[in-house]
Each structure stands twice: as C-alpha cells, then as structure tokens.
C-alpha cells in the first residue's frame, strides 16, 4: 500500500514537472520567435530566410541560394486576392525594367491552389519566377499577415524594406531603390 502511494506521488510530481517544462519551453520559444517583419520594425536588417520551393512557372524547385548577389523583390500573393490583381501589372513591369540592374522579382504564391495560381499567371502574363509556399513556412518566417505583401532584399541577402498591402509605383520603386543602395 505504501509503495502504491509513493508511486502515485512520484507520478503526480513528474506530470506537473513535465507540464511546467512544456510551458517554459513554449514561452521561451514564443519570446524568441522574431520574424523578418518584426525585425524590420525594430530597425534591424535581418537575413532573408533560406528556402527551397516548387516553381509554378516550371517543374523545377527554386533554391534561395540561386538568388545570391541579386536584389530580390519577394511578393506574397494568391490568385483569389483582389489587390493582388491590381498590382500584378506593376510587378511584371518592374521585373522587366529593373532586370538589367540585377533585380529579380519573385512571386510567392500562398494559401492557393496551384492550378488557380497558374491561371492567374497566364492571365496577367507574368514571366518572372513564381514559387508555391505549400506549408506557409516562408510566409510565417517573414511574419506576413495577409496578401499581398512585398519584401525587398539587398545584394548581401539582408531584408531592407517591407510593403504591406498592394504596392504602388512609388512604394515599389522606393523598395527596390532602397535595396539597391543599401
């Protein structure tokens, strides 16, 4: 009887200690869970998160390392998003205009069906690379909160600007210029 009681007490203490440990771990990870967007708000220039994602414009994968040394305009979008339609033409123009200066526009399709995304790309005649962020990992690491959102990365791989919502000619040019000059 005494051993049963001691066993139950040990089990209870172990259970409480385990739950406490889980709570501490969760809180510690939440505190340290900075995103690109939150770092930018704090005045930092965080490194662009690495990724390997499936391309929608070809059958291949795209690795972020292949964009090293280029200024990148990362645009999170989805085919069902109305403001994304409004800015599609601007992004396509920017891709053509800035290409000679080493600027790459990269579309990151998010929370979307690939077939719908491809139809969107055909409709708006997008010829810049587009990848599909299937598990939202890249979206979450950037700390985006909706679509569309655009981030500009300089040649050193640091994220230097963030445009929440649809870009305009001015905000897009300012984002790209900022990345070119930083």
């Amino acid at each position: 009887m005494r051993s049963v009681r001691i066993g139950a007490q040990v089990l209870s203490v172990a259970l409480v200690a385990g739950l406490l440990g889980l709570l501490v771990w969760k809180v510690a990870h939440q505190v340290g869970d900075s995103t690109v967007a939150s770092d930018l708000r704090d005045g930092k220039e965080p490194a662009a998160p690495a990724f390997t994602l499936q391309r929608l414009d070809t059958d291949a994968d795209l690795e972020s390392s292949s964009l090293k040394g280029k200024v990148q305009v990362l645009n999170f979008w989805a085919s069902w998003c109305v403001p994304c339609r409004d800015e599609a033409g601007l992004l396509q123009s920017a891709s053509t205009e800035w290409r000679s200066r080493g600027v790459v526009v990269l579309g990151i399709d998010h929370q979307d069906l690939s077939s719908d995304a491809r139809a969107f790309m055909r409709h708006y005649r997008l010829n810049y690379p587009v990848v599909h962020d299937a598990g939202d990992k890249l979206y979450q690491s950037y700390g985006a909160t909706g679509v569309p959102e655009t981030f500009c990365v300089n040649r050193d791989g640091k994220v230097v600007a963030h445009v929440p919502g649809a870009v305009t000619r001015d905000t897009l040019d300012s984002c790209i210029q900022g990345a070119l000059e930083s």
């Binding site: 929370q111 069906l113 690939s114 599909h132 299937a134 598990g135 939202d136």
Partner: peptide, 15 residues
C-alpha cells in the same frame, strides 16, 4: 477521400 486529402495537403500543408 485519401487521394483528395493528399492533394490538399500537397497544396496547403498538413494543417
């Protein structure tokens, strides 16, 4: 059902 769920997971992730 499994095929449809697998297709959706491939598009949107396990969540």
């Amino acid at each position: 059902k499994t095929e449809i769920e697998d297709a959706l997971v491939a598009q949107f992730g396990q969540a």
